[in-house]
Nucleic acid binder design. Structure first.
Lengths: 175, 175
DNA sequence: ATAGAACGTTCGTTAAAAGGAACAACGAGA
DNA sequence: TCTCGTTGTTCCTTTTAACGAACGTTCTAT
């Protein structure tokens, strides 16, 4: 496994810069780094320092993580990538996930503990989701709540899908 | 302006490592970096390379940005912290936010573009939220959808609140 | 045309990040 | 007690990222 696709960083860096109307020289000056440095980075060579990345992120006004790990992150084997965003500690417990599914993939999730409910918001793309046998087709912006204590699935057809999922575990303690 | 508090990175790095039961030597070996390197980083000195950060993030299983900008990020002046999780690029456009409010704070959000709708899931704590004059009290796990093209607010009383918010901009292009 | 200013690239030098070995400190077992 | 293994730190060395200047280009204005 290698670094987060150095070339990807370069491309992303460049597209962000151009999108904001900066020239390479300008951005380098504003960020306080040598333009030779920035040039090399955009070409996909090089392995920038935290300090360098940070300065660029500030000037480009991106949340930092966005700069280095563009949306196109490594997917899991099954074409689905899941990231835990946050976890509530109180009762009822709530887990929040960010999720991305490649086209033509199906992900079947095991039932959670009894009483658990899921809530889903589609950020982009199209998705068919819900308890098995009772799925719904969703478009960007749609939300869906469903019983998470039964097997449920996420299925894409010819489009990607990015979504937010939160699971609420009713009942005292489920772990 | 200086780098993202190198010392903060160090502390966070160390707490993450210990939380997962790694020893410094183990983690360094697993990540494929010299332990002298990791040691120096945890002490707050040094300015790690993207490659180094990446390898550590992978082993610690954190979304990378989390490593350098820890969860307990500085709250805004108003006691509210907001993080952009993701942005859809298609139509309708959808923005996804993670948000955390300190006790006894009120955040009033400007109306978004006409037709915009908001969707909210409370991850932990208690919160009163919604369009002004039509707010609802929410507990962990509750969800709420509301018209986002009117001024709306988020208010906590004696408890913290962590939530997921997504905004759907209906209409062709709103920017 | 022609001087000027900006663009982005390539080069050699320098500063510093990463590597590697030696180190003292601590705990577990024989 | 004494050894062995592991902890995390501190050196010194090697590698390399960042710098700064020079370069060829392109475009504009005189």
């Amino acid at each position: 496994m290698d670094t987060p696709s150095l070339s990807t960083l370069g491309q992303h860096l460049q597209s962000l810069r151009k999108a904001q109307g900066w020239s390479l020289s300008q951005l380098a000056a504003a960020a306080g780094i040598a333009k030779s440095n920035l040039s090399r980075l955009e070409q996909g060579n090089g392995n920038p320092t935290l300090d360098t990345i940070w300065r660029l992120a500030v000037q480009l006004k991106v949340p930092f993580g966005t700069l280095v790990a563009p949306i196109a992150v490594p997917l899991g084997e099954d074409g689905v990538e899941v990231r835990l965003i946050d976890q509530g500690k109180e009762s009822p417990q709530v887990d929040a996930y960010w999720m991305r599914c490649a086209p033509f993939t199906t992900r079947v999730a095991e039932p959670h503990t009894p009483g658990a409910r899921g809530s889903l918001t589609l950020i982009s793309g199209h998705l068919e989701a819900g308890p098995e046998g009772d799925t719904r087709r969703l478009a960007a912006g749609d939300t869906l709540t469903f019983a998470a204590d039964r097997a449920h699935c996420y299925r894409t057809s010819d489009d990607w899908a990015t979504l937010l999922v939160s699971v609420v575990y009713h009942g005292e303690s489920h772990r």
